[in-house]
Structure formats: structure tokens, C-alpha cells
Simulated assay, not measured.
Amino acid sequence: MSLIGILIIIVGFTLKLDTIAVVVSAGIITGLVSGMGITEILNTLGTAFINNRTTCLFMLTLPVIGLCERYGLKAKAIMLIQKAKGLSTGLLLSGYTLIRETTIAMGVTLGGHPQFVRPLIYPMAEGASIAKYGELDEKDVDTIKGFSAAADNFGNFFGQNVFMANAGVLLIVSTLETLGIKADALKISQASIPIAVIAFVLFVLQNYILDKKLKRKYSSRKTN
């Protein structure tokens, strides 16, 4: 019964209920079935929030990005990328993934979706295709949005464990040690390097296919 919180989260997310309400409810109910009192549950939740409050700092970037967009950040990004005639959407996204993966592998975090993808990378990726083919279909715009988000996800997810002091590597080490298995953070990070390289190559291939599809679709339109 102490794992009922997991079931609540699964059901809540499946029904698309309010995320915060689902998570808090799961925590409270899990505490109650585990024999904790309301005061103890609230104290535990409050302590966890205080200890991890730095994870909420990204919220400060949202109004800043909003102000930048209001004063032309997105428009300037599109204008800049349209001047680079030989740059395609796939090439731009591949370049960003390489930068994202390299920096996170060195322990440097650029920001992510709110700070880079939404205000810069996606508008530039879309602008690169508009510069080549003109107005895009709504479906293709959505596809470029998805690929822009994936560029950040690929770079961040597969590159972070290359840095041996990353939280993911330390979690792996601590988990294995609690199971009585001696683990070396350096060896784990070294084993992550080929995975990061393979992931990058596969994403570059996806971007290449995307460029080919866009070129074939819109070049045929111009011919007709």
C-alpha cells in the first residue's frame, strides 16, 4: 500500500489532471497509508521543497524570455538565420545538438527549452526552412517544433553522464554501492561516451532525412 502514490500519479497523468494536485495528493496519501500524521507529512514535504528550492530557479527565466520576445528576440533570430542561405533546418539542429551535448559533457548547462529552444533555436530552425521554401504548412511547422525540442533532449540526456560529477552518474554510483557493488564514476562516464556519440549520429541522420523530405515536398511545389 505504501506504493499507492505511484498508482495515483499514473492515473492522474493518464486522465490529464492538474500535475501539482496529483503529485501533492500522491505524497499525502502515501504518507497516510505509511502511518505518518498530517503534521509529519507536511513537514516532510516542506523540508523536501526547501532542500530542492534551487530547482525552481528556472521559473525566473520565463518572464525574462517573455520580455525578450516582446521586444523582438524571436524576430531578430529569424532575420539572422535567413541571411545564411546555405543553412538548412537539419544542419542547424544538428549543430545545436553538438553544442548542447559537448557543453553538458563538460558540466556546463546552457539552459534548455525555456531559455534556448523556445526563443532561439525553434525560430531559427523554422526561419531556415522559410528562407529556402517560403511559407510552410502547419504540419511541417509542428514537425520542426518537435525536432527543435528533440535537439535539446538528445544533447542533454545522452551527454550529461559523460561528465563524471553529474548528478546522474553520482546516483548510479550510490545506488550500486547500496547494493554492495563497487562502482567507479570515471568508468561510468567513459562508458557513456560511445552512447553519446551514437545518439548524436542517429539524430544527425534524422535531421538529414527531415531536410530531404522538406526539399522534396517544397521543390515539387515550386516546379508545379
Rank of each mutant, 00 (worst) to 15 (best):
L3F: 14
G5W: 13
K16Y: 07
L17R: 10
T30Y: 14
E40D: 15
N43T: 12
L45D: 07
L45G: 07
I50N: 09
I50P: 00
I50K: 08
I50C: 05
T54D: 05
T61G: 10
T61R: 00
I65K: 02
C68H: 00
Y71D: 02
A75H: 01
K76F: 14
K76E: 14
A77W: 03
L80T: 13
I81F: 07
L87Y: 04
L87H: 10
L93N: 01
R100E: 14
T102R: 10
T103Y: 07
I104H: 14
H113N: 09
Q115C: 04
R118P: 04
P123C: 11
E126I: 14
A128Q: 06
A128R: 15
E138G: 15
K139L: 08
T143C: 13
I144P: 01
G146W: 01
S148C: 05
A149H: 15
A149W: 05
A150S: 10
D152K: 00
N156I: 15
F157P: 05
G159A: 04
G159Y: 10
G159E: 15
V162Y: 11
A165F: 04
A167L: 03
G168P: 02
L171V: 00
E177Y: 07
K182H: 12
D184T: 00
A185C: 05
K187Y: 01
Q190M: 09
S192Y: 13
I193G: 01
I195S: 13
A196D: 13
A199C: 06
A199N: 05
F203I: 02
Q206G: 13
I209L: 14
L210H: 08
L214Q: 14
K215F: 06
R216N: 12
K217F: 02
K217G: 03
K217P: 02
Y218T: 08
S219E: 15
R221F: 11
N224H: 07
